[in-house]
Computed example of a mutant assay.
Amino acid sequence: MTEFSGLPLSRPWRRFVQRDVLTGLLFVALAGLGLWLSRDYPVGTALRMGTGYMPRMLCWILLGLGAVIAARGFRDPGGDRSDVPIGIEALRPVVLVFTALVVFGLALERLGLVVAILLLVGLGALAGRNLRPAETILAAAFLIVLAWAVFIAGLGLTIPVWPEI
Rank of each mutant, 00 (worst) to 15 (best):
M57P: 00
I137A: 15
V115R: 02
A140S: 13
A90R: 04
A116I: 04
L146A: 15
F104G: 04
D76N: 14
L111Y: 05
V68W: 11
D40S: 14
L118G: 05
T99F: 12
V103E: 13
M54W: 06
T99L: 15
G50D: 09
A70N: 03
L47E: 13
D76P: 00
P93H: 14
A116V: 06
L101M: 11
L146W: 11
A153T: 05
F98Q: 03
R72V: 08
L146H: 04
V43H: 00
L47N: 10
R72N: 09
G44I: 03
E109G: 13
G44T: 13
A153Q: 09
A100L: 04
I137M: 08
V102K: 01
S82H: 14
R110F: 11
L120T: 09
A149E: 10
L126C: 08
R72P: 01
F104M: 11
G87E: 11
L62Q: 03
V28S: 09
P93M: 14
G122L: 10
A31E: 09
S38R: 00
L91C: 10
T51A: 12
P85T: 14
G34W: 01
L155K: 05
F104N: 07
I117D: 07
R72D: 07
L111D: 08
G154I: 11
R72K: 08
R110V: 12
F142L: 10
I152E: 06
F74I: 04
G156Q: 01
D83V: 04
L138W: 14
W148C: 05
V150C: 11
L123Y: 07
